[in-house]
């Protein structure tokens, strides 16, 4: 018979596995070099389909459990068929998904049980940029705001720290806050 007064926290994140991977990849740094890939196929108009299936990591080709697809399009107010989210909305979806995954992982690691995590993401954009109306206006978002509502066994400062740490370790947060060299070519 055994009793314990340490509450079992389960946010569904395998923290031990993540820490094990961190230790192993610290030793074998080459294995940490990943390449993610997507293929995209135009369907019609502004509607296209993007698929992710394989990626490279841990020194070998890897597969998703099954191919995942997302269709993107433009909304009807731009005379499109609205067959899916706009590509910039997909970026917002990626940011929220990445931060929420980080929040669950960090909370698990810090022994914080989450009950609910909800986020709203707003990206502010002056479409005068993409429409070529004003060369001074950038094409992309000029600001993104993410608001989290979290119900969990922790005080407000602990939750702020979890949200801050999630940003610090987020791939998509880094992608949208820092410049990235991009090459687009015709083959």
């Amino acid at each position: 018979m055994s009793t314990t007064d340490i509450p079992t926290v389960d946010n569904g994140v395998q923290v031990d596995a993540l820490l094990g991977a961190k230790a192993q990849l610290s030793e074998v740094r080459e294995a940490a070099a990943f390449t993610f890939r997507a293929t995209n196929e135009w369907i019609s108009g502004t509607h296209s389909r993007t698929t992710v299936d394989g990626f490279f990591g841990l020194g070998a080709d890897q597969q998703h459990r099954e191919p995942h697809q997302v269709e993107t399009d433009h909304p009807e107010i731009f005379a499109s068929a609205d067959q899916g989210p706009t590509p910039p909305e997909l970026v917002l979806m990626g940011l929220a998904g990445c931060l929420s995954a980080g929040i669950a992982s960090v909370a698990q690691h810090r022994g914080i049980q989450l009950r609910s995590v909800k986020a709203t993401v707003e990206g502010r954009m002056d479409v005068a940029g993409i429409l070529g109306i004003d060369p001074e206006v950038r094409n992309g978002f000029d600001a993104i705001a993410v608001r989290y509502e979290i119900d969990a066994d922790a005080d407000a400062d602990d939750l702020r720290a979890v949200v801050a740490q999630s940003q610090k370790r987020s791939a998509v947060f880094d992608i949208v806050t820092n410049p990235t060299a991009v090459v687009v070519e015709l083959v």
């Binding site: 400062d157 702020r160 720290a161 801050a164 740490q165 947060f173 880094d174 806050t177 820092n178």
Partner: peptide, 20 residues
Amino acid sequence: AQFSGSLANVCALADLKLRR
């Protein structure tokens, strides 16, 4: 020169650690 958009977060992290 490009500056990161992460300023608000690094300041928030520093303030949280200061309070700790």
